[in-house]
Computed example of a mutant assay.
Amino acid sequence: MTTVINTPPSLEEKPFEQVFDQVAAVPQDEKIIVDARHVRWANPYGLTALLALAQSRSERPVLYVPEAENVSSYWSRMSFFKHAAELYDLQGKVYPARGQENRNVLLEVTSISETDDVHSVVDRISQVAQDTLVQQLKLEAKVTGRFAMALSEVCQNIVEHAGRGGWVAVQSYQWRVRLGGRKVVVIAVCDSGVGFRGSLESSPAFQQDDRWDDRLALEETLMRGVSRYPDRHRGHGLQGVKNFVASWDGKLSIRSGTARIMIPPKGDWDAEDEQQMQQGLAYFPGAQVQITIPERFA
């Protein structure tokens, strides 16, 4: 049996829940077709989550690629199809990247499976982050180093906790509606590994109680710095990311299993962004992280 998974026109963090809802109802070893023909927009989260989706399936899925030339060309510019070809059977015409487009791509979709990959990502993005963060987002020059640190920490989370590889991508663009049309930088890191709950449960010191679930695992990791490693300093990496994002009025969102934790941002964000914890989401393995840093107004 083959099931068709229909994607929404916009592949971003919240609309992607429609994809997770459909996939959760299909046995993991059943064939699926991901129909992205009518996609009109995808941000770094949407692209990396599509790869994690294919990674999570035991039967190689099919991907119907976007029909719109500008969308397909952008996905090519983001190096999405290079990675997707390893995981999906691609159906439809893939348009090449245009030379003039997407000057705001800070980091194309990049695979992460070991520490050297993380170092490479940080080295690459450090060369372009200064101009974007200082000139476009009007942040202080010192933020560049902390931005690289935050990127390194969320990528290192894949290496240390996922149990398998994942992907990262970074882009800047202008929101036309939200935040008064301000520019933002979006970091997305997605995998389909063991997730935060599975990682903590692998610790020899782990003690489960009746309340233990994905929500508590996220809270233990992000809010209290708990890690599966005995070194008490090992769990504070994501706490540092949380503090960095909060200091620049940004948003940090982490989804794992059936829950999502979000650090409420300041400013003119969507009203639903005030919801710090969501439970009872459709199950999807691994961790899906998005960091959004907005332009700072004087």
Score class of each variant (00 low, 15 high):
residue 2 T to V: 12
residue 3 T to I: 15
residue 10 S to R: 15
residue 11 L to D: 00
residue 12 E to P: 09
residue 15 P to W: 12
residue 17 E to M: 08
residue 20 F to W: 15
residue 22 Q to I: 07
residue 23 V to N: 03
residue 27 P to D: 01
residue 28 Q to I: 11
residue 29 D to R: 02
residue 32 I to D: 02
residue 35 D to H: 12
residue 36 A to K: 05
residue 37 R to N: 09
residue 41 W to P: 04
residue 44 P to W: 01
residue 44 P to V: 05
residue 45 Y to P: 04
residue 45 Y to N: 00
residue 52 A to D: 03
residue 56 S to I: 03
residue 62 V to F: 11
residue 72 S to I: 10
residue 80 F to P: 01
residue 85 A to R: 07
residue 86 E to V: 07
residue 88 Y to Q: 06
residue 89 D to Y: 08
residue 89 D to K: 13
residue 92 G to N: 12
residue 96 P to H: 03
residue 101 E to Y: 15
residue 103 R to E: 13
residue 105 V to R: 01
residue 109 V to E: 03
residue 113 S to D: 04
residue 120 S to F: 08
residue 124 R to E: 10
residue 127 Q to R: 06
residue 127 Q to T: 08
residue 130 Q to L: 11
residue 130 Q to P: 04
residue 131 D to Y: 01
residue 132 T to F: 09
residue 135 Q to E: 11
residue 137 L to M: 06
residue 137 L to Y: 07
residue 137 L to C: 03
residue 144 T to M: 15
residue 146 R to E: 09
residue 152 S to L: 13
residue 157 N to I: 00
residue 161 H to C: 07
residue 162 A to T: 08
residue 163 G to T: 04
residue 165 G to M: 03
residue 169 A to K: 02
residue 180 G to C: 13
residue 181 G to L: 08
residue 183 K to I: 05
residue 183 K to F: 11
residue 185 V to F: 02
residue 189 V to L: 07
residue 192 S to A: 15
residue 193 G to Y: 09
residue 194 V to I: 14
residue 195 G to I: 00
residue 199 S to R: 05
residue 200 L to T: 00
residue 202 S to R: 07
residue 207 Q to A: 14
residue 209 D to K: 04
residue 209 D to V: 14
residue 209 D to W: 10
residue 216 L to V: 09
residue 230 P to C: 05
residue 233 H to T: 15
residue 237 G to R: 02
residue 242 K to L: 01
residue 249 D to I: 10
residue 254 I to E: 00
residue 254 I to N: 01
residue 255 R to F: 01
residue 256 S to A: 00
residue 257 G to T: 02
residue 260 R to Y: 06
residue 261 I to P: 02
residue 262 M to T: 05
residue 262 M to V: 09
residue 264 P to N: 01
residue 268 D to T: 13
residue 272 E to M: 09
residue 273 D to Y: 03
residue 274 E to I: 07
residue 275 Q to M: 13
residue 278 Q to F: 10
residue 279 Q to N: 12
residue 282 A to N: 08
residue 282 A to Y: 06
residue 291 I to M: 05
residue 291 I to F: 14
residue 292 T to Q: 09
residue 293 I to V: 04
residue 294 P to E: 02
residue 294 P to N: 02
